[in-house]
Each structure stands twice: as C-alpha cells, then as structure tokens.
C-alpha cells in the first residue's frame, strides 16, 4: 500500500495554501511534514483525509484514485492535535461510534474495543469521560480510535503538541510501537524538527505551501538544498556568514573549531547544555554559534576555523544551494 500525491494544490481566494505537492509515502514508511506555522502542513493532511477539496492534482492510495471521495469513503485514520474526543461520551462510546456507523455488530465492536484499549493500556478507563483523563491518556484514546478504523493510511496532526516535553519523550516509543508497526503509510505533521527526526524515515520540509526538500533526516541536515531548510533543520541553528562574493556560507555550530588563525571573535555569552556548551561569539561577520565540548577552555585570543567540506554555499538572493 502506498500513498501518492500528484501535483496536489489548494487554492482559496486566488491564494495557494499548498501548491504542486508531489510525494510518495511507501508502505511501512513514516514521512514527517515539518515547517513553520501556516506553511500548509495541516492543510495537506486535510486534503489527504478528504476534509477539504483539492483544487488541482490527485491523491492515490495503492494506485486507486481517491481525489473525489468523501472522508467516509477513504480509509484514513487521523489523530487530531486536540484529540477531538466527544466530551459527552465515555471512552468506550467514543470508540464505538465509528464502528457502529460502519455497521459492525455489537459483539464484534466490544471485542475490538477491548483489544485496542488493551493495546493502549486504557481498558480500565473505558467508562470514563474524556474530561476525567490526563492529556496523555486522551491522546492514546484518539490513537485507539484511529487504529480501530483499520485504515490504509495514518495521518497524525501534531499528535503530541499538547503534551509536556517529558511526556512527549515517554510517549514517542509507544507511538512508534502502535502506529509504525501497523506497516501502513504514515504522515506525521509536526512543527518540531526534533520530533520529526525521531519519528520519521523521511522528512518533507514545507515552506509557504511548497515542498522545499524531501529527504532522510541525515541528508536534510548535511545536504540541505536551500538556506530555508538549513536554517529549519538542526538546533542550534546553522551559522550563516555573508561572503565577499555575495554568497552565504552555512556552517553548522559543531563544525567550528578554535585555532591559531582565521576569523577573530569575542565571547558574548555561553549556554550550558549538559553534554556540550553553546558559545555565542561576536565576529566581523556577525554572531557565530559554536557547539563545543563542555571541558573546552576558551582561549584569550579567539580565532575560528572550519574545514572547507563543512561549509555549504548558498545563493544570497534565491537562498538556493550552490554546487560545491
């Protein structure tokens, strides 16, 4: 089973919310959609789910064109950012609703719900209303509902952004276990590039409704195709130095070393990150960020250097990468 988008676009009032999206998500693959807010990530999911109509292009699942089908006729399991559980129904009834509508018998419904609630370890909360559950539990119920749909595609819309940082880290392995083991194409929308790298095999970086680059986390980090991608992927952010020839040189903070010659600078501030320290140095070319080992001593005369192969050149006007 594969999910394929071909030149998909959505236009509202002569404005492209997403434009010319083409991508393929393979069986058993998790693709993350990342980008700043308003870049069209959630719209893309809604187009795939059929919640919004596409203006151009087509959506296919395993070669079957589903572009004009209603959400009910497509087989997608979606987890919403707010979980979207019905407040007046308890957990069991929330899960039962979709099954009942799809004509599953009472006995089968009960056994299926029992099974999926065991899987997300919430069978003991079956009679609770959503308001009586914690954020993490609600998220698991929403996930259980998507699993019960037995969909051909999973769509996760910022499923963890309402959880605190610690819980997010705890839930990540569980999410991987539950969703990725279904071996279905999965699209994971997030604004957190860190989460995207942790969850997905490939990441699509969206900018103003267009795909900047789709690649593996490794390639996005080391071979960004544009300044936008280079800046969006990787924390602390890449250093962008304007060169005499009008190009922009991007250097990752961990690639910069102290040396006897090179760019001179002055220490502005430092942040301890535990396993490393982040130094902010003032230079003629602006503030430069350096990731250094925690035991790194800071020399009195600061000179900075990096290897030529760690440098990525961008066109200053278009922001596109120049071949090395």
């Amino acid at each position: 089973m594969t999910l394929e988008l071909r030149q998909v676009g959505r236009n509202i009032n002569n404005q492209w919310i997403v434009e010319n999206l083409t991508m393929t998500v393979a069986d058993n693959e998790c693709l993350a959609l990342v980008g700043p807010s308003g870049c069209g990530k959630s719209t893309t999911l809604r187009l795939i789910a059929g919640l919004d109509p596409v203006s151009t292009g087509s959506v296919q699942i395993s070669g079957r064109d589903i572009t004009t089908l209603s959400p009910a006729e497509r087989s997608v399991g979606m987890v919403f950012q707010s979980y979207a559980l019905l407040p007046h129904l308890n957990v069991f009834e929330n899960l039962e609703l979709g099954l009942r509508i799809r004509g599953v018998s009472k006995r089968e419904r009960t056994s299926k719900i029992r099974q999926v609630l065991d899987l997300v370890q919430l069978w003991n909360r079956a009679n609770n209303r959503p308001a009586e559950l914690s954020g993490g539990q609600r998220q698991r119920v929403a996930l259980a509902r998507a699993l019960l749909r037995e969909p051909e595609v999973y769509l996760l819309d910022e499923p963890m952004s309402n959880l605190d940082a610690q819980l997010r880290e705890d839930i990540r392995p569980e999410l991987r276990r539950l969703v990725l083991e279904q071996r279905k194409p999965t699209i994971y929308v997030t604004h957190d590039q860190h989460e995207a790298m942790a969850m997905a095999q490939r990441i699509a970086v969206l900018n103003e409704g267009k795909i900047e680059q789709i690649d593996t986390p490794y390639n996005l980090y080391h071979n960004p195709c544009s300044l936008f991608v280079a800046r969006f992927i990787g924390r602390p952010q890449i250093n962008c130095l304007k060169d005499e020839s009008g190009h922009i040189r991007g250097v990752r903070p961990e690639a910069i070393r102290f040396s006897d010659s090179g760019l001179s600078g002055k220490l502005q501030s430092r942040e301890w990150l535990g396993n490393s320290q982040l130094l902010f140095l003032e230079t003629q070319q602006g503030v430069i960020r350096i990731m250094a080992p925690p035991e790194q001593a800071i020399p009195e005369q600061i000179r900075l250097t990096w290897r030529a192969e760690d440098e990525i050149l961008f066109n200053a006007e278009t922001g596109l990468r120049l071949s090395r």
Binding site: A72, V76, M78, S82, L86, G98, I101, R102, R145, R149
Partner: peptide, 13 residues
C-alpha cells in the same frame, strides 16, 4: 471546536 466534526467525518458519519 471544528475538529470534533472533522473527526466524525473521518469516522464516516
């Protein structure tokens, strides 16, 4: 919240 209805649409209602 519009997501409640969206979720119901995805569920096939």
């Amino acid at each position: 919240p519009p997501e409640l209805e969206d979720a119901a649409r995805v569920e096939g209602l």
